[in-house]
Simulated scan of single mutants.
Amino acid sequence: MARELKSEALARELREQMDSGQLPPGAPLPTTAELRERQYSTSTIQTAVAILRREGRIESRQGARPRVLPRRAIIARSASYVTADQEGRRATWKQQLAELGMVGDQMLGRVGEVAAPDDVAALLGVETGDSVMCRPRVMLADGEPVQLADSYYPLDLASGSPLALQGPIRGGVYRVLAEAGLEPGDCEEDLTFPQPTAEEQERLRIGPDVCIVRMVRALWTTTGRPVAVEVMVLRADRHRLTYRMPAQ
């Protein structure tokens, strides 16, 4: 059996203190000086902190001591976003987080026309760089950025509709589709696990070593017309994705 590195031993020791409640959520980690008194070198301490950050156990910000994060996962049941209940309603971010005992909120960026990225253009059936409508959002859980959700729509659908307004949309894209006489059909999700870009790090307030999930969700109508592409970046340490597959 491989010998445990000192950094791994320190990470394990701190992890056990978190699990036992000795270091509760919100508590700062011991200072570097305190850990050095326990015969750990500065490089060992830095590596152990990086391990815990990758695991989503701590949050560190520039100029502040790392703090213990709560171990509450945001359980995303993807079907709930696209499947209506018996009364025709679809769960909102705020409603889903309320069910998990958290406060959900969002920050809407500047709504407007942008050049379609490669993957968005392919899914919407337009050329790369063509103009599409974009609604960029940062999703919050208890005030903490945990997800990016940038929605893209064809201009012929979005222009002059609530999708182009700088504000929340009652009923979302599904209401817009209904008012346009369009019926939502298939939905597809594609997941990848890249390193966060500099822009994503800034918007989510994370470091480059925090793991993310990039989810691209495309929506078509029952006639096969592409009507929406949502590009989401999820903090892997704060999410659990759950899927239920129909038998047929």
Results as ranks from 00 to 15, higher is better:
A122T: 15
S78E: 11
W93P: 03
G224N: 03
D130T: 06
R89M: 09
L157E: 00
T242H: 15
M107F: 13
S161N: 01
A76T: 11
G143S: 05
A247H: 11
V82Y: 06
K94H: 11
L14N: 02
F193W: 13
M245A: 11
S20T: 13
G143A: 08
A228L: 12
G172I: 02
E16P: 08
P28L: 06
G21E: 04
P154W: 01
S161M: 03
E99K: 12
G160R: 01
M232R: 11
G101Y: 06
A27M: 07
E189I: 07
R57H: 08
Y40K: 02
T83M: 11
M232V: 10
V103L: 13
A178K: 10
T83E: 12
D85C: 07
L69K: 05
L69I: 08
G112A: 04
C134L: 14
V68L: 06
R135V: 00
G88A: 04
Q106W: 08
D156E: 15
A84N: 07
G101E: 04
P117E: 02
L163H: 00
A178Y: 07
R67D: 06
S43P: 10
G207V: 03
L124T: 03
G171F: 01
R225E: 11
D237C: 12
E113I: 03
R175C: 04
E230G: 04
S131A: 15
E34N: 14
T32P: 10
L148T: 00
R244M: 14
E179K: 09
Q96E: 12
R36G: 10
A48T: 05
Q248R: 15
Q147R: 15
P226H: 05
L177V: 02
I45K: 03
L148H: 01
T42Y: 13
D209C: 15
A180I: 07
Q201C: 10
Q62G: 14
D19S: 11
G101S: 10
Q147E: 15
F193R: 14
K6Y: 08
E189Y: 04
T83S: 11
T32F: 10
A236N: 13
M107L: 14
R110G: 09
W220E: 14
L234R: 00
D156C: 13
I206G: 01
V210D: 09
A79M: 10
E179R: 10
T47W: 10
D186C: 09
